[in-house]
C-alpha cells in the first residue's frame, strides 16, 4: 500500500497524467498522495509518526518548485536537504545526550516495563545498542538524501512547471524508489532487527 501511494502512483500520475490533465493538476495529485498516506498512517496508528512533518514539508517543497517554476537544482537540493536534515537531527540529539532513536525504538519495542528489572549495566548496554542504531540509521538516511539529490541532478533538467519537468519528476520518483528508498528500507530493517537481537541478548529472553 505504502509503495503504491508513495512511489508507483505518483510516478504514473506524473508520467501519464501530465498529458491528460495538464501540468498543475498532475503535480498536485502526485504530491498529495504521499501526504494522504502520511496522514492516513497517523490516523491509523496510536502514536503519530515523527516523520510526518518531513513528508508534508517535502511534498510542499516539491510543489513550490513546480508552481513557482524554480530551477530544477532546487528540487535536487530539497531531495538532499530533508534527509540530511533528519540525519543531522539524529546526530545532534545524540551529541546532546538525548538520542532521538530511543523514543523511536520504544515505539516499536516497549522497553519501559523491562528496564527496572535489569541491572544498570544491562540498561547501559541497551542504550549503547540504541545509540549505535541511531548513528547508523541517521547516517543511512542522510546518505539516501545525498543519493537522491545526485539522482535528481542526473534526471531532472527541465524547467519547473513544464510537462517535461513533471515527466522527469515521475522518472525520478520511480528510480529513487528502486535505487534509494528500497535499499534504505532494507538497511533500516536490517539495523532494527540487529538491534532487537542485541537487546534480546542483553535481556536474556525474546522481546514480545
Amino acid at each position: 500500500m505504502e509503495v503504491v501511494l508513495v512511489a508507483v502512483l505518483p510516478a504514473v500520475i506524473l508520467t501519464w497524467g501530465t498529458t491528460a490533465w495538464g501540468t498543475g493538476p498532475a503535480l498536485a495529485l502526485a504530491l498529495a498522495l504521499p501526504v494522504i498516506h502520511a496522514v492516513w498512517s497517523r490516523a491509523a496508528s496510536v502514536a503519530p509518526s515523527p516523520f510526518l512533518p518531513f513528508v508534508v514539508l517535502g511534498a510542499l517543497a516539491t510543489a513550490s518548485v513546480g508552481w513557482f517554476a524554480l530551477s530544477p537544482v532546487w528540487f535536487a537540493a530539497k531531495e538532499a536537504l530533508l534527509p540530511v536534515g533528519i540525519g543531522l537531527i539524529f546526530a545532534v540529539s545524540d551529541a546532546f545526550g538525548r538520542p532521538l532513536i530511543v523514543p523511536l525504538f520504544e515505539r516499536l519495542v516497549e522497553l519501559g516495563p523491562i528496564r527496572p528489572g535489569l541491572t544498570v549495566d544491562q540498561n547501559a548496554k541497551i542504550d549503547g545498542a540504541l545509540r549505535t542504531l541511531g548513528r547508523m540509521w541517521g547516517g543511512a538516511i542522510a546518505l539516501s538524501g545525498v543519493a537522491s539529490g545526485v539522482l535528481a541532478l542526473a534526471i531532472v533538467h527541465s524547467e519547473a512547471g513544464t510537462e517535461a519537468f513533471n515527466l522527469e519528476l515521475g522518472r525520478h520518483t520511480a528510480w529513487s524508489w528502486g535505487v534509494i528508498t528500497l535499499p534504505t528500507t532494507l538497511v533500516t530493517m536490517f539495523l532494527l532487527l540487529r538491534t532487537v537481537r542485541r537487546v534480546e541478548a542483553v535481556v536474556g529472553r525474546p522481546l514480545t
Binding site: R115, P116, G117, L118, T119, V120, D121, Q122, N123
Partner: peptide, 10 residues
C-alpha cells in the same frame, strides 16, 4: 553490591 537492578537503585 553490583550488579544492581535499576528498580533496586531507585
Amino acid at each position: 553490591w553490583k550488579p544492581i537492578r535499576l528498580a533496586t537503585w531507585i
